[in-house]
Simulated scan of single mutants.
Amino acid sequence: MTEARIDWAAHAPRLVDAATADRAWYHAVARELVAPGDRLAVDIGCGGAGMALALARHMTCGRILAVDAEPAIVEAARARIRTEWADPRIRIDVELVDIADTGSLRRTVCGHADLVWASAMVHHLGDQQRAVDALAALLARGGRLALAEGGLPARHLPWDLGVGDPGLELRLHTAEDRWFARIRAALPGSRPMPYGWDEALRRAGLDPATTVTTLSELPPPLPPPQQRAVVNRLANRIGRLRDTGLLTPADLHTWDRLLDPSDLVWLGNRRDVFLLEARSVHVGRRG
């Protein structure tokens, strides 16, 4: 998998932390995706192995194949699975695969999958429809392809923080949208996909295609671990945009104050930080 300006090796520890924090969401989604009789499930772009472990816990026997294109992520996923998984009825394998190489991916799967899961992965590939087509080709008859893409961006902060101009977080979302457009344009073989994910599944021959969106909400005040996670998440997002020119100097100065533990306005001290996020999963079935 090729991506501009993202160092995935550096993100490996954060992906494991995120997968651990999202454990409940993974289990809720896996519970709905796994069907009786499933024997082979594939997690494409496995990150911190959150879904691989969740699928294993909902299958009665068989194999989970988790693949990723980044060696550091593969090693982090293997380490987590060694720590958390011991049930001999279900084998979890983690393999290093160039996900953009459809032939390599097909050879690694080496069979027809009952379920293929890809979370926030397809949008990192230049030709998204071609990627969906390739993932659909891994399915056995009756198999399902589930794409976790889209939804609504997470909200964490009040509109007026009493520091900087109101609407700070809304401007962050706008900057991230413009940054993502740059990333997409720079990808090798980048092609537009001017339609939704459900239509992409149908064009790949998977019909019916459905979408389920889950709302995640933690009202304020957040427990300390969740508060730290939100602050760290915001710090990572600002770090990614810092040198892009997409945030104004005034907004960057405000974010620096909000993310500085020595500043009186540090977000870690606020009691009005919250979590509100909507995540969509699109599922298509091979007839």
Rank of each mutant, 00 (worst) to 15 (best):
A146M: 03
A120S: 13
I99R: 02
L138D: 05
G143Y: 04
A140Q: 07
S104Y: 12
D133I: 07
L139R: 00
E95N: 11
R106V: 12
R144Q: 03
L145H: 03
Q129V: 06
L139P: 01
L139I: 04
G111D: 11
T108S: 09
A136T: 07
W117E: 08
G151R: 05
A134R: 01
W117C: 02
Q129G: 09
T108N: 05
L115P: 00
L105N: 01
V132I: 12
G111M: 06
L152H: 14
M121L: 14
R155G: 15
R106E: 14
R155W: 11
V94C: 08
A131Q: 08
E95C: 13
L147I: 08
Q129D: 07
L96I: 06
L152K: 14
L138I: 06
G151H: 09
V132H: 03
R107M: 13
C110T: 12
D98L: 08
P153C: 10
R144D: 06
A100P: 00
H112D: 15
L105M: 05
G151V: 03
A148F: 08
M121G: 04
Q128M: 12
G142I: 08
D98N: 10
D127F: 11
L139H: 00
P153K: 12
A118S: 12
I92M: 02
W117L: 08
V97N: 02
D98S: 10
L96W: 02
E95H: 11
H124D: 09
H112R: 15
D101T: 11
A131L: 05
I92R: 00
L135M: 07
R155S: 14
A113E: 00
H124T: 06
G150L: 04
R107L: 10
E95P: 04
L105A: 00
A113S: 06
R107I: 10
I90C: 02
M121I: 13
